[in-house]
Computed example of a mutant assay.
Amino acid sequence: MSDPGPAEYVRPKDIDNRATFWQRVQWRLETIAWDVIYWAPMKALGPDKASDFGGWLVKKIGPHLSQQKTMRRNLRLAFPDWTDAQIEETALAAWESVGRTAGEMPHLPAIDPYTGGRVEIVGLDVLDRIRDSGKGAVFVSGHFANWEIMPAAITKRIPSAVMTYRALNNPHIDKRIADLRAAYGTQVNAPKGIGTRELMRALSRGAPVALMNDQKFNEGIPVSFFGHEAMTAPGPTRMALKYKVPIVPVATVRTGPARFRIEFHEPFIPEDTGHPEADIRRSVERISAFIEAQVRAYPGQWFWQHRRWPKEAWKAAGIA
Rank of each mutant, 00 (worst) to 15 (best):
E120K: 13
Q215I: 13
Q215D: 09
M105L: 14
G46A: 12
R238W: 06
R166C: 08
R238M: 06
N170P: 08
N74A: 08
A102S: 05
S133F: 04
H306F: 06
P80F: 10
P106C: 12
I194T: 14
V126N: 00
Y114W: 06
A40S: 14
A278F: 02
L29F: 11
L92D: 15
M105Q: 06
M150A: 15
H306W: 07
V188G: 02
R259N: 11
S66P: 00
F225Y: 14
M212C: 12
L57M: 12
I194M: 08
G142E: 04
T101M: 11
F260M: 08
G117H: 06
I280L: 07
A230K: 05
K175V: 04
Q294T: 08
S288I: 00
K156M: 13
L203T: 05
I87F: 04
R259K: 14
D174K: 04
K315E: 14
D279C: 04
P191M: 10
R166I: 08
A230Y: 03
E30K: 01
P6V: 13
A152T: 02
R28K: 14
F139C: 05
A102I: 15
V25S: 06
G206V: 09
D179M: 13
I287N: 03
V138L: 00
I15L: 09
K156F: 13
Y243Q: 01
V25I: 15
E271A: 10
A183F: 03
E312V: 10
E89H: 02
G99I: 12
S2H: 11
H275A: 13
V140W: 01
R176M: 15
N146D: 12
T70F: 05
G123V: 04
H228L: 02
A316E: 12
Y298D: 12
R261Q: 11
Y298K: 07
R307C: 10
S133Q: 11
G136W: 04
G300P: 05
G195D: 06
M163C: 12
W302N: 13
K216V: 06
R238Q: 14
A289L: 09
E96N: 05
Q301H: 15
M200Q: 15
L203F: 10
P234H: 00
R24N: 04
W314P: 07
A202Q: 03
H143L: 09
W22C: 02
N169A: 13
L211Y: 03
G195I: 09
T20G: 14
A167R: 03
N74S: 14
T273V: 07
L45T: 12
E96F: 05
R281V: 03
I194G: 02
Y184W: 11
Q215Y: 09
W82I: 08
A313V: 10
M163W: 05
L65F: 12
V223E: 02
W302A: 14
F260C: 07
N74I: 05
A207V: 02
A102W: 12
I173V: 12
P106A: 01
G55F: 00
A78M: 07
V188I: 03
E8L: 09
I154D: 09
W314G: 09
P4H: 10
S97D: 11
A317N: 11
K315T: 13
S224W: 02
I269H: 01
R181N: 03
E104L: 01
A293W: 00
Q215G: 09
R261T: 14
F79E: 05
